[in-house]
Amino acid sequence: MTFTDDLRKENEDIFQMIFDHPFVQGIGKGELPKEAVEHYIKADFEFLNAFIQVYSLALSKSTNRDDMTYFHEQIQFTLFDEVKPHLNFSEYIGVRFEDLQGHPLPPSGDHYIKHMLYHAYTGSLAETLGALLPCPWTYLEIGQELINKYHPTAEHPFHKWIHFYAESGKETEEMRKRLDVLAANAPLEEQQRIKDAFRKSCQLELAFWEMAITYETWSGDMAVTK
């Protein structure tokens, strides 16, 4: 069993909570409040901007061209390919994607990106990968779970979103392989930091879905809108 196999096994509880979350199940059913989808897109656009920054920091920690090429490709994937699921959601709510950009992150999203940036700035490359991996991994398995459970046809409103992530296994597998190599040579103390970073990212993935379905905002902003 590899290091990332252990990570997945140790965090089965959080993965299952994510699969069962009302927003995720709403994607599978093709039924979501448009306001929740809008809230999600606004937050996820800014989150992915931060994800690109974390990849850039990982690139700066790389000592060989193979790693540099990998992180460069991941930046390109996030910049240009991950627009597609956002466009699918934007079409569903009838709002231009451009109008959903540049909004402040809700607390859970803000917490998540600062968690990743902390590990990227203070930790090793392996620790950085540990904080990054839950995002692509949970989305891959969400897509696969929703296909297996709901068998969405081309007419399903979120067909493109579901298939985009269900077919993103290459990206997740490559990140897992790199983390497995690095973790195998890491001391026990570093391995534990990787595990802590991974679990917290899983928990924050769950919080991100909850943020969307509850329209989470900062307390002061809530007071202003009442």
Score class of each variant (00 low, 15 high):
T2H: 02
F3W: 03
T4A: 09
D5R: 04
D5H: 01
K9P: 00
K9C: 01
F15P: 07
F15T: 10
Q16P: 06
D20Y: 03
H21M: 05
V24W: 04
Q25G: 05
G26F: 08
I27V: 15
G28P: 04
K29A: 15
G30C: 05
E31V: 14
K34V: 06
V37Q: 09
E38N: 09
E38C: 00
E38D: 02
H39F: 08
I41F: 00
I41T: 05
I41L: 11
K42P: 11
K42A: 06
K42H: 02
K42W: 01
A43G: 07
D44P: 01
F47E: 01
L48C: 07
L48S: 10
N49V: 11
F51I: 05
V54N: 13
Y55V: 00
L57M: 15
L57T: 10
A58G: 14
S60R: 06
T63P: 02
R65T: 09
D67E: 14
M68D: 00
M68F: 11
Y70S: 06
F71Y: 15
F71Q: 01
E73I: 04
Q74W: 00
I75D: 07
Q76E: 12
Q76C: 03
Q76M: 13
F77I: 15
T78N: 02
T78Y: 02
L79F: 02
L79D: 03
F80H: 14
F80G: 03
V83H: 05
K84W: 06
H86W: 08
H86A: 08
N88G: 07
S90D: 08
E91G: 01
V95N: 04
V95L: 06
R96W: 04
F97G: 00
D99N: 12
L100W: 06
Q101W: 14
Q101S: 00
G102T: 10
G102F: 04
G102K: 10
G102I: 03
L105A: 04
P106W: 08
P107W: 09
S108I: 01
G109K: 00
H111Q: 10
I113G: 08
I113W: 07
I113V: 15
I113Q: 10
M116Q: 12
L117H: 12
L117E: 08
Y121I: 11
T122F: 09
A126M: 07
A126Y: 11
L129A: 08
L129G: 03
A131K: 04
L133Q: 05
P134C: 03
P136E: 04
W137V: 03
T138R: 03
T138K: 05
Y139S: 07
L140F: 12
I142E: 07
Q144E: 15
E145R: 15
E145Y: 14
N148Y: 14
K149T: 15
K149Q: 15
Y150V: 15
P152F: 15
T153K: 14
A154H: 13
P157T: 04
F158H: 09
H159V: 06
W161M: 08
I162R: 05
A166S: 13
S168F: 06
K170C: 08
E173H: 07
E174P: 01
E174Y: 06
K177H: 01
K177G: 01
K177W: 00
K177L: 00
R178A: 02
A184V: 13
N185C: 13
P187R: 13
E189M: 09
Q191L: 11
Q192L: 09
K195E: 10
Q203H: 09
F208K: 04
M211H: 05
I213V: 15
T214D: 11
S219K: 13
S219Q: 14
S219P: 00
M222D: 12
